[in-house]
């Protein structure tokens, strides 16, 4: 009598678990990236896809609206990569929508950013002939994004706006425009951007804006690093390796930024020098943060044996 009662209990429990598992699968399938999601395709030719992975985020106006479902080299367009994305229902993808990639300086992970050129344009629903999904156009090159960043800064930050406006005084605006045009023509990839700015450094106006935009990104990443660093004590094992790698990657950017700021400081234009000083300070702040994180293990466990300087001692 006793053994039969236990078998019944075990069998019932097993059935309940199987039913719950099935329900969970159905629920997962029907939500998120399931059948309600809208799929689109993007041909990327100008943007580097380094750091892009399946399930990477797709964002619009800063919000996550979907994810990358796959990518492959294009057989129909030479040099292009086809990226497939799945978007939440209700995401307003229009015919004027463009896609660009953004890469986080610290983690190196890339996201696909969607932006609507005009909110009045019709929704993108039709698939072109021969395409399984509607195709979103690729956005501007990284250099154009950089100039967009400068424009956004001008709108959002009063102090930055004042400086940019001064830089764009009538006597400078022609040269500034020419410099930007030159940079737009030549710059195709983000990596080439730094090299180009160095090579044309006598064009101080363009370089100043480029440096300023880079500084804004670096400040954000410095904040992220600082927060990660603060949480090191609670998540030491997972964070140490990540932070050291991030700092290693970032140090080269800091060095380049600081060198260009130094060169700007040597110029005779007082406004540019003023801007460069601010940028230099930001770069140094970041460098100092990176320096403190050079070996986070030491923060927890102290310097290695024999690693103390003259007169230094642990209590």
């Amino acid at each position: 009598m006793e053994p039969e009662a236990k078998y019944t209990l075990v069998g019932a429990a097993a059935l309940i678990l199987v039913a719950l598992l099935a329900a969970a699968l159905v629920w997962l399938k029907s939500s998120g990236e399931g059948r309600d999601a809208h799929r689109f395709k993007i041909y990327f030719e100008k943007h580097s896809l380094e750091g892009l992975e399946p399930r990477s985020y797709v964002t619009m106006q800063g919000m996550k609206v979907g994810s990358v479902t796959g990518f492959r080299f294009s057989a129909s367009r030479k040099g292009a990569v086809e990226v497939f994305i799945s978007l939440d229902p209700g995401t307003p993808v229009r015919t004027s929508t463009t896609a660009t990639t953004e890469r986080h300086l610290v983690t190196g992970l890339a996201t696909v950013r969607l932006a609507n050129g005009s909110e009045d344009s019709p929704l993108l629903t039709e698939s072109p002939e021969g395409e399984p999904y509607p195709v979103i156009q690729e956005g501007g090159s990284p250099m154009q994004q950089m100039t967009d960043t400068v424009s956004q800064l001008a709108l959002s930050a009063g102090e930055t706006m004042r400086r940019i406006n001064t830089t764009l005084a009538p006597e400078n605006i022609a040269a500034f425009t020419e410099i930007l045009d030159n940079l737009r023509r030549v710059s195709r990839r983000a990596d080439a951007l730094l090299t180009k700015a160095d090579a044309t450094f006598d064009s101080l106006g363009g370089a100043a804006d480029e440096v300023r935009a880079a500084a804004v990104a670096l400040k954000t990443d410095a904040d992220t690093l600082t927060k990660t660093y603060a949480s090191l004590g609670t998540d030491a094992a997972a964070s140490i390796g990540e932070i050291r790698e991030a700092v290693r990657k970032m140090s080269a950017d800091v060095d380049r930024l600081a060198k260009r700021a130094d060169a700007l400081l040597a110029s005779g234009d007082e406004d540019l020098r003023d801007t460069a000083r601010a940028v230099r300070a930001a770069a140094e702040a970041l460098g100092n943060a990176a320096g403190r994180m050079r070996d986070p293990r030491e923060v927890i466990y102290g310097p290695p044996e024999g690693g103390l300087g003259p007169g230094e001692k642990t209590r």
Binding site: E298, L308, G309, E312
Partner: peptide, 9 residues
């Protein structure tokens, strides 16, 4: 021929 950094200064 060698250089190091102070840790606390």
């Amino acid at each position: 021929g060698t250089r190091e950094y102070y840790r606390f200064n």
